[in-house]
């Protein structure tokens, strides 16, 4: 089986892995999110580098399993998933295209990380309701359904929505 690993280039493996959806937000992939960092080879061992979004994000274990099982399906058995911490993940790595996918899915995409950095008073400046586009919104909670989201509500269309916090 290890023979077959050589028939895929690192770039081809990266492309394969780039199709894996995020376990918690299935409309975007782990590449869209910036979690998938690189594929390298050490002999016949394939090293896949991923970086966590949040330190305690439970989706990371799931992503690791998804990577190993997808490559196994392709006949690549010798896989090691390495967790890298530097440089630290930032929402700035989410592509504009992925941000648009998030918005259509009902999650307000993150602003540029520099926009809400102040520790005690910070809040997103250009946040708009992903449903009606109104900027007349109010925070319900800094912490939402997953580590990466905050909970907001729109004061115009009255719908609650998730905001992908920028870090």
């Amino acid at each position: 089986m290890t023979q077959e690993a050589h028939t895929y280039t690192n770039q081809e493996i990266f492309r394969l892995l780039a199709t894996i959806p995020d376990p918690e937000i299935p409309v975007i992939t782990i590449e869209d999110l910036g979690v998938l960092r690189s594929v390298t080879r050490e002999g016949d061992m394939v090293h896949v580098c991923i970086t966590p979004t949040y330190s305690g994000c439970p989706a990371m274990k799931m992503i690791e399993q998804d990577i190993v099982s997808l490559l196994k399906e392709k006949g690549i058995e010798k896989v090691k998933v390495d967790m890298v911490y530097a440089p630290a993940w930032t929402t700035d790595w989410i592509s504009d295209e992925a941000k648009e996918k998030l918005r259509r899915y009902g999650i307000a995409p993150p602003e540029k990380a520099t926009a809400d950095k102040s520790a005690i008073t910070g809040k997103p400046k250009h946040l708009a309701c992903p449903r009606c586009g109104s900027k007349n919104v109010e925070m319900i909670s800094q912490f939402g359904s997953t580590a990466c989201k905050a909970l907001y509500k729109c004061l115009d269309c009255k719908e609650p929505f998730d905001y992908f916090k920028c870090i």
Partner: peptide, 24 residues
């Protein structure tokens, strides 16, 4: 310590949200 520095960058981003929450 490069690992510690990387974890501090990551942790610092998270703690910023925690502090904002508890200060409020």
């Amino acid at each position: 310590d490069e690992t510690l520095a990387a974890l501090a960058v990551k942790g610092g981003k998270e703690v910023t949200y925690h502090l904002r929450h508890t200060a409020a």
